[in-house]
Nucleic acid binder design. Structure first.
Lengths: 206, 206
DNA sequence: GCTAAAGTGGTACGCCCGTACCAATAAGGA
DNA sequence: TCCTTATTGGTACGGGCGTACCACTTTAGC
């Protein structure tokens, strides 16, 4: 029965801007170094603003973290959407399908190669944080739903059995394989055989 | 080039016992509340020993954490092995196969029902910690390898395509589906349909 | 019994944390 | 203009952390 308060304070345009700069700094930190690296102080330093500003614009660190995660998810969905749109209309070979699936899971965000390991970690750290902090669940749920949609599109272009069920199966395999790879210190592309195998199963039983 | 030191101090039987009690306390804490709950002080309190004992018997918290994780993994493998041995020699229905797979992934350790949510979280937190702290990788790698073996046995009893590749595929699906479930706050048994679907695929293409 | 080593337990240091507080300043509507 | 409200930024509090330190007691081999 938490007090809703939220004093409904109007914040000026400049205030909004500062607030946004805090969110941006937090989401960058989150992407680069994970959840544990996001504190009031680290965010303030990165955003070049005094410590107190981070408590002035956000009711708590959880609040800030939630905004940062939403920001990150927004960026990811945009990139994943773009990746799917850039795909050819027909995905012929199994390799193409596997590559398409991976292209929406592991994004190389305008960066150099192989930085994706850190962001993949955050990608999955998100799940655990969401499990322990329910206020983050919306961000995870909506993002995953969008991933489902994109995989449905990929399946359609590959002439594979459509439907949400299949998409969830594909996403589960990709998640499981990628997570195991990062956990065991294996290269990201070592997951290809596993996904390849699933896709072939789906093809054979068409 | 870390100094190996390890001063090779012989520790007495009673010392070993105390050391073990620390490991036990740490692994319990780990199982119940996750990695972040394991600190020198929380372990000391749980084990009913003074703080300094935790630094006397372990060179660092990482060291202690590694031992605790190994302990936990030992318990898990024992339970998983027992679960497979308790399985019927022939797994006829798809449901049986799905249940068998889940029985080795989500263990209800002599506890009441539905406590498994917390331990499932740790189960996957392990992957991320291993990714960020390489000294934990051995524990994860060997445990996963054993899981592969057990799944191979299950596949054999179900007359499904054998081999390490298939086992890895099954494990990936189970991991991905379970992780998504805990992240989205869904009940553990909501993963059954997804695994069911994969098993059916494997059956059809036999 | 003596002595070195192992073990014990209390305490302290320095760091980082979330958050609260507060005086000073800027902005904007009356 | 004034006065309210938003914003700013410096500081402080209380607490948890890993780890070091040290005086003390126990143990085991000679």
């Amino acid at each position: 029965m938490a007090k809703v308060s939220r004093t409904a304070r109007r914040i000026s345009a400049k205030g909004q801007q500062r607030r946004q700069s805090i969110i941006t700094a937090a989401s960058e930190l989150l992407l680069e170094q994970g959840f544990s690296a996001v504190s009031h102080r680290t965010v303030a330093d990165r955003a070049r603003i005094p410590l107190a500003a981070t408590t002035y614009y956000f009711s708590s660190l959880e609040d800030l973290m939630g905004e940062a995660l939403h920001e990150l998810a927004r960026g990811w969905t945009a990139q994943a959407n773009a990746a799917v749109e850039a795909l050819p209309a027909r995905l012929g070979s199994t390799q193409e399908v596997v590559a398409a699936i991976l292209s929406i899971m592991v994004l190389s965000p305008t960066d150099r190669t192989a930085t994706d390991s850190a962001s993949l970690l955050v990608f999955y750290e998100r799940y655990l944080e969401s499990a322990r902090h329910p206020h983050l669940r919306d961000a995870v749920r909506t993002f995953n739903a969008q991933l489902d949609e994109l995989i449905i599109q990929i399946l359609a272009r590959a002439d594979l059995p459509p439907g949400l069920e299949s998409a969830r199966l594909v996403l589960a395999v990709a998640d499981g394989a990628l997570l195991r790879a990062v956990a065991e210190g294996a290269a990201v592309n070592t997951v290809a055989p596993t996904i390849h195998q699933l896709v072939e199963q789906l093809q054979q039983c068409r």
